[in-house]
Design a protein around this nucleic acid. Structure first.
Length: 343
DNA sequence: CCCGTCTCCTACATTACGTCA
DNA sequence: AATGACGTAATGTAGGAGACG
């Protein structure tokens, strides 16, 4: 079975331009296509529904802990467009690479060492139970997976990591002992980075993914959930700021344009008063060709020859630039009026 | 088919904690 | 060492959606 992970269009630069201000997995263009075994339900929301469905079955039937679905072996296809700072092999997502590594209790691989915020096993188990995920069977798709942080650690030494881990562990255990209601544990850089990477893949998690991430990072599923909630909120806030900035610039541009047009209008009025002959011209109707958007004048004069209608070019001798500008301005106004009446 | 209830998930607002200048 | 600002983990609440009786 293959999991096709495709990131669609990049998020719209200005979310207010469409009518979907909410940031959703759909906005981010996330879509999962399962090669076989599933039909119809293809996105992660539906996947979540399936997981939920299974949980319901488990709750209701007790003994039937293993769902009818075959064990999933999901592979991340290599065409993921998200740029990575490292090859995929270094950054594996647990729900995509099941059954590839040993259980956390076993002798860990080279990357073993992420033990931040570790909770006693019973606590984790209880947490998982609370989250309604009874997916811990050997066939579960949520088998543990250890992340390889060797590359990610950058310049930090092994000792640094150990210190981090000790600090976090002691804090966690202190909190456990104190039974304090609120415990805030700062996530390690590695944990944050990993969560960030998975957030790039999709901004929402289904229960399976949440559990896998939690296990992977030695966090409680609730913590992973909260992190994604807060991350979505931050993303939205940032987008709002960007939108706001864009609107500001639009406003400034329009204000400038308005000032410029006002100034032009003033100049034209001044010109009009200083050149009274201009007023003696026959009545002129300005029309604009809708296709080519060119302004044409229709002069109506009641001369001795009777009513004549002729399309004329601007009197270039007497009214050079000013008149043509007037046409432009008037055409603009006509256009605006037409637009206004149309809407 | 409709309705009420339950469960889960999410957005959102807020609080509280950790870090840093 | 004390303090305020800031970032963010954690909490509480309301509302929507789906399942179920």
């Amino acid at each position: 079975m293959e999991l096709a992970l495709s990131l669609g269009d990049t998020p719209k630069p200005f979310s207010f331009l469409d009518n979907t201000p909410k940031i959703s997995h759909k906005d981010l263009g996330f879509c999962m296509g399962l090669g076989s075994g599933f039909s119809g339900r293809s996105d992660d929301k539906k996947e979540a529904c399936e997981a939920e469905d299974r949980r319901v079955v488990i709750r209701d039937e007790g003994e039937r802990r293993v769902s009818s679905d075959p064990p999933l072996q999901l592979d991340l296809l290599p065409f993921s467009p998200v740029p990575r700072s490292q090859p995929p092999s270094q950054l594996r997502f647990p729900w995509l690479t099941d059954n590839l590594v040993s259980e956390p209790g076993s002798s860990g691989g080279p990357g073993r060492g992420l033990d931040v915020n570790r909770f006693p096993a019973p606590a984790i188990a209880a947490e998982e139970a609370d989250d309604g995920a009874s997916l811990s069977s050997p066939n579960s798709t949520v088998s543990s997976f250890q992340m390889d942080f060797c590359v990610r650690n950058g310049g930090r030494t092994k000792r640094d990591l150990e210190v981090d881990n000790e600090r976090a562990s002691s804090r966690a255990s202190d909190d456990e002992e104190n039974g304090s209601t609120r415990k805030k544990l700062r996530l390690s850089k590695e944990q944050s980075a990993f969560l960030e990477e998975s957030f790039k893949e999709h901004s929402t998690l289904n229960p399976k993914q949440k559990l896998a991430l939690a296990k992977q990072l030695n966090l409680r599923p609730r913590q992973v959930e909260v992190w994604f909630q807060n991350r979505r909120a931050r993303t939205k806030l940032k987008q709002t700021e960007v939108d706001c900035e864009y609107l500001k610039r639009c406003c400034e541009t329009l204000t400038q344009e308005n000032r410029r047009l006002q100034k032009e209008l003033q100049e034209l009025r001044a010109l009009k008063t200083s050149q009274p002959f201009y007023m003696q011209l026959p009545a002129t109707t300005l029309t604009m060709c809708p296709s080519c958007e060119r302004v044409a004048t229709t002069t109506t004069s009641s001369s001795a020859t009777g009513n004549t209608t002729a399309t004329t070019a601007p009197n270039s001798a007497a009214l050079p630039l000013a008149k043509s500008r007037l046409y432009q301005v008037q055409a603009h106004m006509n256009q605006a009026q037409a637009h206004q009446s149309a809407s």
